[in-house]
Amino acid sequence: MNSSVFSFLSDFVFLLLLFIQIPSSLSNDDRYTACRKDFVCGGGIPVGFPFWGNGRPSACGIPELELKCDHEKNITTMNINKVAYRVLEINPEFKTLWIAREDYLAGLCPPQFPSSTFNPKILEPVEGIRNFTLIYGCEDAPKTIPGPRTFNCKIKDVDGQSGYIKEGVNGPGECNRSVIVPVSDFPPWNTPVFEWNVETLKGQLKTGFVVRWKVNMDLCGECSTSGGVCGIVNDTNQTTCHCPDQSSGSKPCAPPAPTPIPPPGMHSPPEISL
């Protein structure tokens, strides 16, 4: 190939790659503009920090609090410790999330069997939550378990294996798997224990439960008052204040520099027309 043609093509490719990368780098640096956008899905309440996702980059929220939006169904979901949850309500005033496990919305036989766990530094169940254990893959349910609390599921491609429900946090015992699920402690769970059954639990799992996010929002109030927007530093996951001048830091945004006023008696010289 002619050296001049090769040189021209090399320069062209370099310039093309440069222009492709510039918008990306600018969007990453422009955290203030990006984090000013709220997360909105369907008719839900717009939310900002500590959440991110759906147009809000990771610098806008806590890593564990990514929200996803199914725009066709207007459904908000999130993953917490490898478990998918439907977000039913977000209350920024009380810092609470009302969530329900996606895998149990269709019944008690999910394809995977992870228990519900939470990072205590980020999320905590509110008062009024009760844990139940779903136990799977038993040859026979214990005779001490009432019939209304037993069910059948396919485990490891084996049909008709028995499962049963126990209140509290329990292991699988002689069975195959156990899954711990929290439910809200409101009716019918305030009825006598002997009255609840499998159908009751199915309904409660669809109703969901409430957790509270444990994120210090003190800086965010000062940041917002100063004209900034709250976010995090990706490398350290520390709360920071993104400012209109695109700077970030642990303090509120600095006020704009005042416009200098000339001292009395000093005026701009008159224009001289020629």
Rank of each mutant, 00 (worst) to 15 (best):
N91H: 11
S7C: 15
G55K: 11
C223D: 01
N28F: 08
V169D: 06
P252R: 04
H71M: 13
D159F: 13
P182V: 02
S115N: 01
F8W: 11
Q112G: 04
L134S: 05
W189I: 07
R177K: 09
Y32R: 04
T77G: 09
D159N: 14
C230Q: 04
S3T: 12
P172L: 01
P258C: 00
L123W: 03
P142H: 01
T191C: 09
I122L: 06
P270G: 09
A106N: 12
Y136M: 15
F12S: 13
G249K: 05
T33K: 04
K73T: 13
N176T: 11
T259D: 09
C253F: 01
P182G: 02
S178W: 00
S184Q: 11
K143Y: 03
E102A: 13
W189L: 11
P114A: 14
V211M: 07
V211A: 08
F14N: 12
F118Y: 06
E139H: 14
V13I: 12
G221F: 00
C138S: 11
P125D: 02
V13T: 10
C175L: 01
I232M: 06
I80Q: 12
P125L: 03
I75W: 08
I62M: 15
E222T: 07
R149H: 01
S7Q: 14
C253H: 03
G221K: 11
G44F: 00
V210M: 10
K156Q: 11
I155V: 14
V179N: 05
I232Y: 02
K202G: 09
V181Y: 00
P146W: 00
N81I: 10
K206F: 05
T259L: 12
T200V: 12
S247A: 07
T207K: 13
L9V: 13
D157A: 04
G173N: 03
L97F: 14
G53I: 01
N81S: 15
Y85D: 10
I135N: 07
P146K: 08
F49N: 00
I20G: 04
G208S: 08
G249W: 00
H242D: 13
Q204L: 15
N176L: 02
S116M: 06
H242K: 09
P23L: 04
I45Y: 02
S162W: 11
F151D: 01
G55L: 06
E167L: 15
A257F: 09
M78S: 14
K68S: 10
V210P: 10
I20W: 07
E167M: 12
N74W: 05
V229Q: 08
P187Y: 06
G227P: 01
D159H: 12
G61R: 08
P172W: 01
P262C: 04
P260G: 00
S162R: 15
S115Q: 03
D38T: 02
L18M: 10
L15G: 09
D70H: 04
V193K: 14
P260C: 01
R149A: 01
T191W: 15
W98F: 08
Q246Y: 10
R31G: 07
